[in-house]
Design a protein around this nucleic acid. Structure first.
Length: 564
RNA sequence: UGGGGCGUCGCCAAGCGGUAAGGCACAGGGUUUUGAUCCCUGCAUGCGGAGGUUCGAAUCCUCCCGCCCCAGCCA
């Protein structure tokens, strides 16, 4: 087969781990984690992180990768997201074994460490409201001011924190802060908030047990350490937070200190990979849910017909670095084409039918022709296709007259019907508006599995029996946005302005070969000369099969056509 | 203008002082009952710029330029 033999990716993170292994760091262990917040569905950018973290665990001896939900903000999170995320990670082909965790598993310990910080004079309860806190923080170029509550006694802090925990205070009335340095050039170190008060939310894991919730910057390093993580991989925007990550672990009694390493997040052209904006697309109804086949979510890609392997290949190919990037869709598309080219059985489907009557073929005759399911893989077997007097071809495969570059059917010309005979167009029938409604053709009975005598027929087109074909609905998906960077265009009020109105075109009159009646939901086929299609889980309102277009075939004819 | 990062082909990306991998895209050609696949071939005297060190620099040093991130009681 082709050379999609996966090359084990190498990247700067694996190099660091190699060196750590050589130096005997972490007792030689390699333990990563994938830490999603359950506040939305996973997208292709998360796939990059999943492949990185689980891929490293897979490739190093004894390597492990935990799945941990970062569920410290119950306001935005829920169990549906937890379930969807688990399904997506599993579908991508990764296994967390018995290591499914929640940051909320550690709420008790997190609380105790906070008490320890207070006891050591390294955290304090602050009564400043959100607005004042911001004002005291200073700006990027000016240092902040110390909170008037910064030097409370340990006893008072202990008492206040305990009362925060027992819900004596309202939301926003007090927070627990680390006592670090209000003049730090790194804003994250200007006494960051560790705990805030949140009443009236029911946490999907802990219910109403808590009314104080720890912040990410405090929770993450401790969760990592508690799980014995060796390498904590995250995206570049957390680079500034690393000093805080280290500060937390250096100031509590814990004997594990994972190494945080940052890599750049994925940017994919013609789409968005911002959870906030994807949420907006869903909630405002611009798409039909998180798993809409146009969405760059894992669930969307799955429904679209992408395979887990193709997404893993994609993640291997784009690599992992710290450089800002803007990956072309073409790379993702090439990955799924490669996979499906070797693995998807072939079939014939006519998307825009044009009737062809073979005048020299008996009306009641049905020939069962044999077609191979894959041109290069005999093991995929063959199927039979009924051939009859009336068939459909695609309207795009006929032109009354055309330049000799056009290798399909023209008036008076010949063309090969894929897996069948060579036919010749004898006459063209039009309606009152001059629109072509039918072709009358003849066939050469000597051309089944043989080249015609004394002449060359250069074109091959696909077809489906008009009497045996099955009506189907075809959904033609295209890019969701018509701008390469919808999120980055400042000349427009919102990324929504770049939504592609033609991202979904539905064809309701398509006709597919009858063998497709045996297909199951999710089965993928190459409709020859058209592209790769995936059978939708549900039929259409009329009870017809629905096929979703995964991706078109490469089309060099389209290029030639455009140029002329 | 404070701090933290990043700049190698159109895009992604190797390279780690010994003379610019690979993939995608693109352009030619061959095979083909899919204008698909497959197979050849081509595609950076050049690594953001300028100096310097060195026999030798994308790799080391200096300065400059450009881009990204940070002022949530979000993650």
């Amino acid at each position: 087969m082709s050379k999609n033999a996966s090359v084990t990716p190498t990247n700067f993170i694996r190099q660091i781990i190699d060196e750590d292994q050589k130096a005997g760091k972490h007792q030689g262990r390699v333990h990563t984690r994938f830490p999603p917040e359950p506040n939305g569905y996973l997208h292709i950018g998360h796939a990059k992180s999943i492949c990185l973290n689980f891929g490293i665990a897979r490739d190093y001896p004894g390597g492990l990768c935990n799945l941990r939900f970062d569920d410290t903000n119950p306001h935005k999170e829920n169990q549906d997201y937890v379930n969807a995320i688990k399904e997506d990670v599993r579908w991508l082909g990764f296994d967390w074994g018995d290591r499914l965790f929640y940051a909320s598993d550690y709420f008790d310990k997190l609380h105790d460490f906070a008490v320890e910080l207070i006891r050591n004079g390294k955290a304090y309860v602050c009564d400043l409201n959100a607005e004042d806190t911001r004002a005291y923080r200073g700006t990027l170029t000016e240092p902040g001011k110390e909170s008037p509550y910064r030097n409370r006694s340990v006893e008072e802090n202990l008492d206040l924190f305990s009362r925060m925990k027992s819900c004596e205070f309202a939301d926003g009335e007090r927070v627990l802060r680390a006592k670090i340095d209000m003049a730090s050039p790194n804003i994250n170190m200007r006494d960051p908030t560790l705990y805030r008060i949140r009443h009236g939310v029911i946490h999907h894991q802990t219910g109403e047990e808590w009314c104080i919730y720890p912040m990410y910057d405090y929770t993450h390093p401790i969760s990592d350490a508690l799980e014995g993580i060796t390498h904590s991989l995250c995206t570049l925007e957390f680079e500034d937070h690393r000093p805080l990550y280290d500060w937390v672990l250096d100031n509590i009694s814990i004997d594990c200190h994972p190494q945080q390493i940052e890599f750049s997040r994925l940017n994919l052209q013609y789409t968005i990979v911002s959870k906030r904006k994807l949420t907006q697309l869903v909630s405002e109804g611009h798409v039909n849910g998180w798993d809409d086949p146009r969405m760059p979510t894992i669930a969307g890609l799955r429904r679209r017909g992408y395979t887990p392997g193709s997404i893993r290949t994609f993640c291997d190919r784009i690599g992992v670095t710290k450089a800002d990037n803007s990956v072309e869709m073409g790379i993702l598309e090439a990955c799924i084409r490669e996979d499906l080219d070797s693995n998807a059985p072939r079939a014939m489907a006519v998307l825009n039918p044009l009737k062809v009557v073979l005048e020299d073929y008996p009306a009641d005759k049905v020939e069962e022709l044999t077609a191979s399911n894959h041109p290069k893989d005999e093991a995929m077997g063959s199927r039979s296709i009924p051939f009859t007097r009336e068939i459909y071809i695609d309207r795009a495969d006929f032109l009354e007259q055309a330049s000799n570059k056009f290798k399909r059917l023209v008036a008076g010309g010949e063309v090969r019907l894929r897996n069948a005979y060579v036919i010749k167009c004898e006459s063209v029938i039009k309606d009152d508006n001059g629109e072509i409604i039918e072709l009358r053709c003849s066939h050469d009975s000597a051309t089944l599995g043989a080249n015609p005598e004394g002449r060359k027929v250069k074109g091959v087109i696909h077809w489906v029996s008009a009497t045996h074909g099955i009506k189907a609905e075809i959904r033609l998906y295209d890019r969701l946005f018509n701008h390469h960077n919808p999120d980055g265009d400042k000349s427009v009020e919102s990324f929504l302005a770049h939504l592609n109105p033609e991202s979904l075109r539905t064809l309701t009159e398509a006709v597919v070969e009858p063998s497709l009646l045996n297909a199951s939901a999710g089965d993928r086929f190459q409709f020859e000369r058209e592209g790769y299609y995936c059978l939708n889980a549900e039929p259409s309102e009329q009870g017809r099969l629905i096929f979703n277009r995964v991706v078109t075939l490469r089309d060099s004819w389209a290029k030639i056509e455009q140029q002329s």
